[in-house]
Write a protein that binds this DNA or RNA. Structure first.
Length: 387
DNA sequence: GACGCGTGGAC
DNA sequence: TGTCCAAGCGT
């Protein structure tokens, strides 16, 4: 690090911190000093917007108030608490990490960041965030916000993922965080990126560190950082078995790895776009180890993920022998629609289930779909949270 | 180092 | 409606 950069670092720390004190949003995890609650917020915020996280964070803490409570809860309950939040391996890692914290550290999150890094789900960012915010350690962080802010301030070139670029950003963040209130400073950097130094139409006129910003000086704010190149989503077609019996439907738990890992679903097999329904039914029969009869088809449910273009085809089936286990799934279970609400399930599968129930597959005397399954809750809370 | 992994909001 | 994105981690 050159002397020039050190000077810049010192000149940025104070202004960003005092800007943060005046302008920070009132977010619920900024009202606690509980390391566990702060940790939870950091995990939920990975690749997820603040407004989405707020209601999840609050509900999750009511349900699992301490590390020990989380560690002793069944994974199914944890995944159910995570339902709809996405990136479900975060929930599995969080659960495993809580158990390790109990076993290895007596139920209290360890410090420094180096120790946190040994726990599942802790990468360099999350370890630095928890270490600085919860424990006051001078640990650097670089997330998408910080990368953008520092790229502009210091005119850091390179695409996201580039080795030299990442090293430069971490070195800058490391130099900058030295000083008073490292946790608040790290949050100031992110808050600044989220609200002022935004990806699109940054508010440079309101920027507290504009005078030191090389990109602003050179008119390159719109060029830095370069947008990451995103691969086109691949198409994925799944055939789902909708198998009603005595007020229940058959559900299956997916393998832990991969898409929707460990979550429950209407039993699914991957098919091709042009796979005939009869053949899809055959494959479901094989997968479930039970002879199925195709009774009819319901609509398809489409769902756009970042990396997948998902089409779920609902096949209404019956069979004489009802399986209770299958080699293809971790677990099978016959559940009423009400019982299914407590299962960890992706939003995509929830939509498919809602569609099936909406078509009356349970028969006339079945319960109607519950209101909670129909629309996203908490709209007003989300709006209020935007800064 | 590249890729797989979700979702709802913004525009 | 389509497109892009947002406080990363694991493999």
């Amino acid at each position: 690090m050159s002397p020039r950069k050190r000077t810049d670092s010192a000149a940025l720390h104070g202004p960003l911190l005092s800007w943060y004190d005046r302008n920070k949003r009132d977010l619920p995890w900024r009202r606690t000093r509980d390391p566990y609650a702060i940790w939870l917020s950091e995990v939920m915020l990975q690749q997820t917007q603040v407004s989405t996280v707020i209601p999840y964070w609050e509900r999750f803490l009511v349900r699992f108030p301490t590390v020990k409570a989380l560690a002793s809860a069944p994974l199914d309950d944890v995944l159910s608490g995570w339902k709809g939040l996405g990136y479900y391996s975060r929930a599995r890692n969080l659960h495993r990490a809580a158990q390790e914290v109990v076993e290895r550290f007596g139920g209290k999150l360890p410090s420094p960041a180096e120790d946190l890094l040994t726990l599942p789900g802790f990468g360099r960012y999350t370890a630095g965030a928890v270490a600085s915010i919860a424990f006051g350690e001078e640990a650097p962080i670089v997330d998408g916000n910080v990368a953008r802010v520092l790229s502009r301030l210091f005119e850091v070139e390179g695409l996201p993922g580039d080795r030299d670029r990442e090293a430069t950003l971490w070195a800058l963040a490391s130099a900058l965080v030295k000083g008073e209130r490292p946790g608040d400073f790290n949050q100031a950097l992110m808050e600044h990126g989220a609200t002022v130094c935004r990806p699109e139409s940054p508010l440079c006129l309101l920027c507290p560190v504009r005078d030191g910003c090389i990109a602003f000086k050179k008119g390159r704010v719109d060029e830095l950082p370069p947008a990451k190149v995103r691969a086109a989503p691949r198409k994925l077609f799944l055939a789902l078995a909708v198998w009603p019996h005595a007020g229940t439907l058959l559900f299956a738990r997916r393998a832990d790895k991969g898409l929707f890992g460990g979550l429950w679903e209407l039993p699914a097999v991957e098919v091709e776009e042009d796979t005939p329904e009869a053949e899809a039914t055959e494959r479901l029969s094989t997968t479930l180890g039970a002879a199925l009869t195709l009774e009819g088809t319901l609509d398809s449910v489409r769902r756009q993920l970042t990396h997948r273009d998902l089409t779920l085809r609902l096949l209404r089936v019956t069979g004489d022998t009802r399986p209770s286990k299958s080699a293809a799934f971790q677990e099978l279970r016959w559940c009423t629609p009400q019982e299914a609400e407590a299962l960890g399930m992706s939003t995509a599968m929830q939509r498919a289930l809602d569609a099936a129930l909406g078509h009356g597959v349970m028969g006339a005397d079945a319960l109607p779909p519950t209101p909670s399954a129909k629309k996203t809750p908490g709209r007003s809370a989300k709006k209020a949270a935007r800064g």
